[in-house]
């Protein structure tokens, strides 16, 4: 009976989220089969329109490359953090967290300043005589990838670190004392043991990349059109809610399916809780 009191504590946030968030999101999904008229014509566009197919392919390609790059770099950092003395580890963690908390907007601005046509790097390259023409690092897919991998590395490090710190070091020692070299021990013992971490980090990075808006919009300079930017154009400029909500539905379906898979073997609050 007394437990009912506690639902009173839950109710305010629950009602707010249900009325002003969950219901509107469901409405967006509903729009994808009702706007402009009822039916699946919005989904048919996927097969009819080559530009839509291109956008989906760009999104998928950029997300996969970002995931690969961020998890690879994150693995190295997490590995070193897990095995270095605690003093150096906390310095490394500080670096990861500072980067984690610097606004995505500030970082996109920084990359534009560094890598732009008249940017600092091109200025240095030209004045040192290494090149005559400025190199185009941004306003193309390379720029988007640099910016997105840079943003995602901390998201890869945190789940990997949690996984590696949970390993029993004696297993690796046993492998070494049985005569396996460091490389063999890594490949046959360590890497398989860290597969859950790699899997979690990959899903997390991929999911966040999938809906990413700011970095592709700024560093892609309109030339690398990904799903999120296309949605915003459809909603704010051309007012095509049907197409926009269809893409949103696909995106949401992918995100939720992947997060559900992730939650099967890792507590989501641990993945995000690592923020602190």
């Amino acid at each position: 009976m007394r437990l009912n009191n506690y639902w009173l504590l839950v109710a305010p946030l629950l009602l707010l989220v249900m009325a002003l968030y969950a219901w509107p999101v469901i409405n967006i999904l509903w729009l994808s089969v009702t706007e402009p008229q009822a039916g699946l014509q919005n989904y048919e566009k996927l097969f009819a329109s080559s530009s839509l197919a291109r956008i989906l392919w760009t999104t998928l390609r950029v997300c996969l490359l970002t995931t690969f790059g961020a998890v690879l770099a994150g693995y190295l950092v997490a590995y070193m953090m897990a095995h270095l003395a605690s003093g150096e580890r906390s310095w490394m963690l500080t670096f990861v967290l500072v980067s984690f908390w610097v606004s995505v907007l500030v970082r996109a601005f920084a990359w534009l300043t560094l890598l732009g046509r008249n940017g600092l790097l091109n200025g240095a390259l030209i004045s040192s005589g290494l090149t005559d023409e400025p190199i185009t690092f941004v306003r193309n897919e390379l720029g988007v990838l640099i910016g997105m991998i840079h943003y995602m590395i901390p998201y890869a490090v945190l789940p990997l670190l949690a996984n590696m710190q949970g390993l029993d070091g004696r297993v690796m020692s046993a492998s070494r004392s049985l005569g396996a070299g460091p490389l063999v021990t890594f490949r046959r013992i360590y890497l398989p043991l860290t597969m859950p971490g790699i899997f979690a980090a990959s899903i997390l990075v991929f999911v966040i990349s999938l809906g990413f808006y700011v970095t592709p919009a700024i560093l892609g300079g309109g030339r690398v059109l990904m799903a999120a930017e296309y949605i915003s154009v459809q909603v704010l400029v051309t007012l095509q809610w049907g197409t926009a909500s269809m893409l949103a539905t696909l995106m949401l379906g992918g995100v939720l399916a992947l997060m559900f898979t992730l939650s099967r073997f890792m507590k989501l609050s641990e993945v995000f809780g690592a923020k602190a």
């Binding site: 968030y21 509107p24 999101v25 809906g211 949605i231 949103a248």
Partner: peptide, 17 residues
């Protein structure tokens, strides 16, 4: 359910709002 706003891509939240 209450953790959803953290998981759903911001662009979809933006459309809904």
């Amino acid at each position: 359910l209450l953790l959803l706003p953290l998981i759903i891509p911001p662009i979809i939240s933006a459309m809904a709002f």
